[in-house]
Write a protein that binds this DNA or RNA. Structure first.
Lengths: 214, 214
DNA sequence: GTCTATATGTTGATAGAC
DNA sequence: GTCTATCAACATATAGAC
């Protein structure tokens, strides 16, 4: 780890979604690893660093995870599953019109990234530190999540509710708003998450050429 | 480095902007480091990995850079300077109206990220691997670049050419489109860089509530 | 499930010859 | 400016006692 330079992410308590294990030590390891991986990166965090913060001996960690890589894989799994489930739930609870569905998807996407910024960063920046076998389930979920938005946009274009300048590029731009959030948004700022989600939903509709009608 | 898992970035020839040193070995080191840092990350690339690709002994690198960190620092410097200069030039050559200036800034931002994707990734993901002293000049340039866009938006809002739902969040969303480009855009695809830049400029104007009038 | 102790390989960086 | 050789520190992971 060497001496701490800049931190990649604003310091804040590591936040795991409720789907994470509730068990004692295993959860503590995941939370601490999340904090360290998010601020210094996976490769710059050693098993020793992790054990030190946990006030355990390095060897004790191997009673809970078979390798450092499996700790990361578990975080990546949790992150992708929480994100995908949030999107699916949002879609299911939304009215069937493309306009409302885009709003629902964007709000869920934004909320997830704003409320679990460390997890978002680790999932996005450290996925490629995993062997293809361990990364595969996450990559599959990623594709499914992207398809949810793409399909809604496609439907909106087909029924002329949307008129984006380029559907694929616009979908990427909409996704990017959320993905970049952890790097500048401070959840303790005056701007609360729900307002932020509303603004992102409005920006998405503008990009798609749909008026907001709220 | 261990065995290559997934690559972080689509494989493609490392592309340094013209401002990089033209000299022989020093430039070769930078190009190779850029390729490796972009695909595997700084901390997962060893001096030995770098030397191997260059067909040099590890010790030979120290005749050109005083440390591994200084190689990264040089890449980060080149990347930030090229980006900032592109934005400044775009502004200078643009008409003075906020609408045209936003188009110019977004086009330059997008071109830079599309044409030098590895550099963009390394600059954005590995900046925090540097000690604060080595990172400081880049951080300063970053702030100046962000201010260029913020000021144009502010001016457009003041003179009622723009009506973004939230100027700061909208500025972040506009920037995010470009920053996320390297992760999905393939410069060899049918979508050429100038078309992409046009689409991003149009999306930015839509977010700002300015009609395009092209 | 935690500890002490250690095996085994890799790391960034340097010394000194040519 | 490159080489060979090497140092000291650190890495992940394991063995075996309690």
């Amino acid at each position: 780890m060497s001496t701490p330079p800049l931190s990649r992410l604003r310091a804040q308590p590591a936040s795991l979604p409720p789907s994470a294990p509730s068990d004692g030590t295993r959860r503590r390891i995941l939370e601490t690893a999340l904090q360290l991986f998010a601020s210094r990166g996976y490769h710059d965090t050693s098993i020793r660093d992790l054990a030190k913060v946990l006030e355990l001996q390095p060897s004790a960690l191997y009673a809970h995870f078979s390798s450092k890589e499996h700790v990361l894989a578990e975080l990546v799994r949790i992150g992708h599953e929480a994100h995908h489930e949030a999107l699916q739930t949002a879609l299911k609870e939304s009215a069937p019109e493309p306009r409302q569905q885009v709003q629902a998807l964007v709000r869920a996407h934004t909320r997830t990234h704003a409320m679990h910024p460390q997890l978002a960063v680790v999932v996005n920046e450290e996925l490629y530190a995993l062997t293809p076998e361990l990364a595969a389930p996450a990559v599959a979920l990623r594709d499914k999540s992207a398809a949810l938005l793409a399909e809604v946009i496609e439907r909106g274009v087909a029924q002329k509710s949307f008129s984006p300048p380029h559907p694929r590029v616009t979908a990427a731009a909409i996704s990017a708003m959320g993905v970049r959030l952890p790097y500048w948004y401070d959840p303790r700022s005056a701007l609360d998450v729900e307002t932020l989600a509303d603004v992102h939903a409005e920006l998405a509709l503008r990009m798609l050429g749909a008026t907001s009608e709220r």
